[in-house]
């Protein structure tokens, strides 16, 4: 598995090839469509991250010092953004996640989605992932 920083750099590289907002959003929407569906079992309040307008569910599994994440949303753009975040953090160790700095979202021109006042739950999801990692630190 690549480390978190190089995965982020790959995304920054990918997005630099996209010319305008339409292409960037088309790319995100495509990512959203390909995000593996979360098991319906986990689409409950227990796994839900309150995000006001679009709902986000996050499930994780911990095995051999590795965290596995899956997530879903009812909104496709949120789903695409989630797919990016999952790709960055999935199959990493709690240590790596806890100390990682998430800096790629602003760099790919989607920083507006990160604001805590933005009603998409993306920011809360990143906080949640960090929190899960912190709980699994040795």
């Amino acid at each position: 598995m690549k480390d978190i920083q190089s995965i982020q750099e790959d995304f920054v590289q990918d997005f630099s090839l996209l010319e305008d907002w339409t292409q960037r959003y088309e790319y995100i929407i495509d990512l959203g469509k390909t995000l593996p569906k979360i098991d319906d079992l986990y689409k409950t309040d227990e796994y839900r991250i309150k995000g006001c307008q679009s709902q986000v569910w996050l499930h994780h599994r911990y095995e051999n010092n590795i965290l596995y994440f899956s997530a879903d949303s009812d909104a496709i753009i949120t789903k695409g953004l989630i797919a990016l975040v999952i790709a960055v953090f999935n199959e990493q160790s709690p240590e790596a996640i806890a100390k990682a700095e998430v800096n790629f979202i602003a760099k790919i021109g989607l920083g507006e989605h990160l604001s805590p006042t933005r009603a998409n739950g993306l920011n809360s999801m990143i906080q949640k992932i960090k929190h899960i990692a912190a709980n699994h630190l040795a």
Binding site: I29, Q53, A75
Partner: peptide
Amino acid sequence: GVHNYDLGVLLDKMGIAIRTG
């Protein structure tokens, strides 16, 4: 098949302010 939040985000990119939710 389309979430109102997604519509709001894309229309915003086109300079249009509507309410969703």
